[in-house]
Amino acid sequence: MKRRNVVTFVAIAAMLLLGAATATAADATYHVVATYKVGAGSPGDIQLDAAARRIYLAHGDRVDVLDADTGKKVGEIAAKGANDIALAPEFEHGFASNGGGNTVTMFDTATLKVLKTIKLDGKTPDAMVYDGGSKRVFVAEPGSGTVAAIDAATGDVIATSAPLGGELRGMATNGYGDLYVAAEDKNVVHVMDTKTLGALGDFPVGSGEGPTGLTIDAMGRRLFVACKNGTMPVIDTDIGFTFEELPMGTGEAGDTFTFAPQGKGGWKGAIFVASADGTLSIERMLAFISYEAGTKVTLVKGIYAVAYDPKTHRVFVPAMSGKEAVILAVGQ
C-alpha cells in the first residue's frame, strides 16, 4: 500500500446506558487481548465481515482471510499491490484496490475466488468504500485525482469522475447520495454526487491539517475526519460545518474507519482512532452535538487501520511486530 500501509481507525460504540464517568473507567480497560500473526510484509487495510466472522487484510500481493474469533488463517486472495478493501455483503463480493496495476480485484467472499480484475481509467487506486444506497464501490485514484464508480453486482466500471484536485485519501458515503473524499494536501473534504460523480463542493476541516481518514455516522449526519496534525474535526454534513475538534494521535491516519453506534436509538457511541504515532485514541459520543476525548491507549508505531467487531466489541488493528505483520485484537 505505497507509503501508507495500514489503514487506521474504527469507531466503536461504547457506553450508552452507562454515563460518561462509567465510560471513562471503561475506556481505561482497553488493552491488547490477542495477537494474530499474518506473516512478513507490511499490512494494509483491514475489513471485518462480522456475520461471517472473517477478517480481510490487504497484505502486499494478496488479501489474507482470517477467522475473526481465533485468528486462524482460512484463505487468501491474490491481489498484487493490495491497498484497500471494500465488502459488499449483499452481493457476497469483495474488492481490493491494487495501486501498482491500476486495477481492482473483485472476489467472491463465499469461495474467496477471484471473479474479475477490473481495469481502471484512473491511476493508483487506493481508498475504497461500498455505498449501500447506490450499490456502488467507489475507488479513490490519487494518481489522477479522480474517483471511479464500480457496480458492486457486476464489477463494471460505471464512471470515472473529472479530476477533483488534491491528493485523495479516505472516503465515506451517507447512503443517500453524497460521497465524501478527503483531500490531504488541500485540507478539505470533497463532496460528490454518488449518482453522477459530479463535484458538489468542499467542506473545510477547521484547524485540522492533512485529512486522511473519514468515517461517518449517517444517522447523526456527522463526518469524522482524521487529520495528521492530531486533530479530528467533527463535521455536520448538512452544512459542512466543523462544530467540534477532538484531539487524537498524530501522524498518518487511516483511509477508512467505521462508526458503530450503540445504545438507545443507535445514537451514543465511542470512536476509536489509530494513528501512526502508535496511539489508539478513544473519542466518546455523549450526544449528537456533544463529543469528548477519552482515553489514549499506546500500541505500536505505524498503525493506522482498524476494524470493529460488534459481536465482541473488540477492535482489530493491523501492526508490525518486528518484521512480521500482526493483527492486534484490542478489547476490555
Partner: peptide, 11 residues
Amino acid sequence: HLLTAVYGPGA
C-alpha cells in the same frame, strides 16, 4: 468557532 457558516452543497 461556532459562528455559523455553510459549506459544500448547502452553500
